[in-house]
Design a protein around this nucleic acid. Structure first.
Length: 110
DNA sequence: GATGTGACTGACC
DNA sequence: TGGTCAGCCACAT
């Protein structure tokens, strides 16, 4: 990836700030970075994130708490396993108690 | 360089 | 309640 894509870098920075055991959504990150409506770009950033290495992409799910990106991990179960290892309950590809675990960038980083 | 696709989302019907 | 559409923009073909 090009160092020049500050948006992607910002996405990675925000994702790295997500506390273990918490989750957030693509749209929330996009909105926090002033790219409201560009949730897909956050998704694409996550697609490239594996190359970075230290980006906890498993803590990013869609707006209803579904692990929509699981198929992009090393194995389809990797995302759920990592979340559960952090204490996040996942059932049928969906984060349980999502509303309570949701990490709001603009609220937490204000 | 046009076209299609997507780890998304909100609005509309 | 549930399906579709339209924006979003980087990337592959």
């Amino acid at each position: 990836m090009s160092q020049h894509d500050s948006f992607f870098q910002d996405v990675y920075d925000v994702v790295r700030l997500i506390p273990a055991g918490r989750v957030t959504s693509y749209g929330a990150i996009a909105a926090y970075l002033g790219r409201k409506g560009s949730a897909r770009m956050v998704g694409w950033a996550m697609n490239q994130a594996h190359a970075i290495g230290d980006v906890p992409a498993h803590r990013v799910v869609n707006r209803i708490g579904v692990l929509s990106g699981k198929h992009h991990f090393q194995t389809p179960t990797r995302m759920q396993e990592q979340l559960e290892a952090e204490g996040v309950r996942v059932e049928n590809d969906q984060v349980q108690d999502f509303a309570r675990l949701f990490w709001h960038p603009e609220r937490e980083l204000a």
